[in-house]
Nucleic acid binder design. Structure first.
Lengths: 344, 344
DNA sequence: CGCCAAAATACAATCGATTGTATTTTAATA
DNA sequence: TATTAAAATACAATCGATTGTATTTTGGCG
């Protein structure tokens, strides 16, 4: 017995014509007479024909599909980026396969294998916290599959990326704390194999330096930046022999963890400690006090990265050109850091 | 010129053997001698061979891929459901294509077409707010592609679904408000084409009835349950000629919108109005006062739905059996509704 | 009516892997 | 050594759509 799937051959046989004509008709080729097209289209609808993209893609060696790898889709930044990616891709007739590395290098590698096996036309990647070797990306390169990093990129030379200026944003965030009269400012940083966290740390340090505030090693704590880490880190800070009155966190999640703990033990924000986060998660505007943070438009970053990738895909020359696009961020000032009356 | 893709034929030619043997070796078939397998595997690695799943899937008419359609991945409930789906699918060697309908029926239909064209082995669906006709689901049925609804299901007879008892949960939420001495309880409901919102409304009504509290039409407002709706709806409620002292929202997002507005205009929660939401979004535990809500484990629901689907896929008999699995929920009591001292 | 170019359609190879069947090789036994 | 069953490998069709080339059909014109 046969599967009940309708193919162009079935349609051809029923109509007593050749399957190549059916194929061309369904693709609206000018080589088929309108009368024939009508006949074929009618019959195709009647039979509920639905093209088998596996066959089509195999023959054309083109899938009109992009792979997207993000650490986790539940992060507001990433889900907005995905929204931007989908919009840009959809506009050009591309589909998107969304995958989560869940911060695991192993999963990231395995996802790339799957994407390659499925012959996606290109890949958008924001790397995991564990990602320290880049073999899997080299593999994409060898297979001539274009890819673009966004947000969490890595430091390999020949790639395109869409990022923000982490150094500058972190500098601004720290500067803001200084302007709010913080003098002992702690920093919760992320895994140092990620460029973004390295750069945020550098920005923090540079601001201190510029304002002649001594840098103290023990005020910087690197972690995975989960909510739990917020409480853990802040406890460490509070046990230090000097009073910390400012905190710049490399993401909002860890900042929120810290705020929750500080509230619980009765430390006042921003009076006792002024806090700034990074990313502008949904929660950040809701928490009390609302969290001052760096807003980065995930949607825009996703869109731009996708357009860059699509450009590479359709334009062989551009595959060799490696661009870095920097998207603007802005500091959103909220209660968690505002200790000074604003003057008009 | 040829593409630079390595195929089993290339490997076969180099080694002077037949491609069928290469294929069998790579699939670890007992029909190939170990010595030959070793030779083939070595060469395959050397050349960076990566199977073309398009070809393989086409031949086998099996993709080991599940389609997932959710309204939007940024909702905590859905991203946890996806995590559960991925885990269950991954365990059985299945991949997952995640798609967002963005609450649009048209997109939902188009996604289903794409999934069919890509010959997914099964589909998991949580329908959009606009979904009022079910032709596209019938299409899946005709094509013999098994599918399972989760959370937002629809009322067609021959399907399997994994849901919660919305009626019961809503009853419990409303009852809780009553126990907290609310006597005029408003309800923010969702689109009435969705079963879940119909049932939550029914549960609300049943609780009032049971406690002999008069039901008032004007205290029920249906909307899309976005954050904006929260403020809009609560304004309407406040303009009514009687004092409302309780609010049960069909999701957390609209509840949070309402809370923000109420805080802004100085109405006290829970003293003036006690509020209960539905879904337990991340934000709900962070907002002040923390939101009492119904917790539904997205992860578990996703897992169960996936296992049900995989069962149907691998077990032809089960395709005809239609089950409804009901997953337990629980009420998380937080500050937004607690107006009465707890007794030990 | 016959000729010819253009239009329409048919033929057949192809994409890369899988798999049932046929053939060859191996090795064990008489 | 000859025989033979079992093991290993080769052959060839197939999945369904696409596409370059070949063939047929159409219709316009002298």
């Amino acid at each position: 017995m046969h599967t009940n799937e309708v193919t162009i051959h079935d349609i051809a046989e029923i109509l007593g014509i050749n399957s190549s004509t059916v194929s061309r008709a369904l693709n609206n080729s000018p080589r088929v007479a309108q009368k024939t097209k009508d006949k074929i289209l009618k019959k195709a609808n009647e039979l509920g024909y639905q093209r088998n993209d596996l066959a089509s893609n195999l023959r054309k060696s083109k899938t009109f599909t992009l792979g997207v790898i993000v650490p986790r889709i539940s992060r507001h930044f990433f889900s907005s980026a995905i929204a931007g990616i989908e919009e840009a891709a959809f506009k050009e007739g591309y589909n998107v396969i969304i995958c989560q590395s869940l911060e695991s290098l192993e999963r990231e590698q395995s996802i790339i294998n799957t994407l390659v096996a499925n012959r996606v036309d290109g890949v958008l990647i924001s790397i995991s916290m564990e990602t320290e070797n880049y073999k899997h990306f080299k593999g994409l390169e060898q297979r001539n599959i274009p890819f673009v990093f966004f947000d969490r990129h890595c430091n390999i030379s020949k790639t395109s990326k869409v990022v923000i200026d982490d150094f500058e944003a972190a500098y601004r965030a720290t500067e803001h704390l200084i302007q709010q009269k913080s003098t002992e400012i702690a920093h919760f940083s992320g895994p140092q194999n990620l460029e973004i966290y390295k750069n945020r740390f550098k920005g923090y340090k540079a601001a201190l330096e510029n304002y002649k505030i001594p840098f103290r090693e023990e005020l910087v704590i690197a972690s995975s930046l989960m909510e739990d880490d917020g409480a853990k880190n802040i406890k460490k800070i509070l046990s230090l022999p000097f009073q910390v009155d400012g905190l710049f966190c490399a993401n909002d999640v860890v900042a929120i963890g810290a705020i929750q703990y500080l509230k619980k033990i009765g430390i006042k924000i921003p009076e006792d400690i002024a806090i700034v986060g990074f990313s502008n998660e949904t929660t950040s505007s809701v928490i009390d006090p609302a969290l001052t943070t760096i807003h980065q438009s995930g949607f825009k970053i996703g869109q731009i990265a996708t357009n860059l990738l699509l450009d590479k895909i359709s334009n062989d020359d551009k595959k060799q050109i490696h661009e870095t696009i920097i998207v603007k961020t802005n500091l959103i000032e909220r209660k968690s850091s505002l200790r000074i009356e604003k003057h008009e």
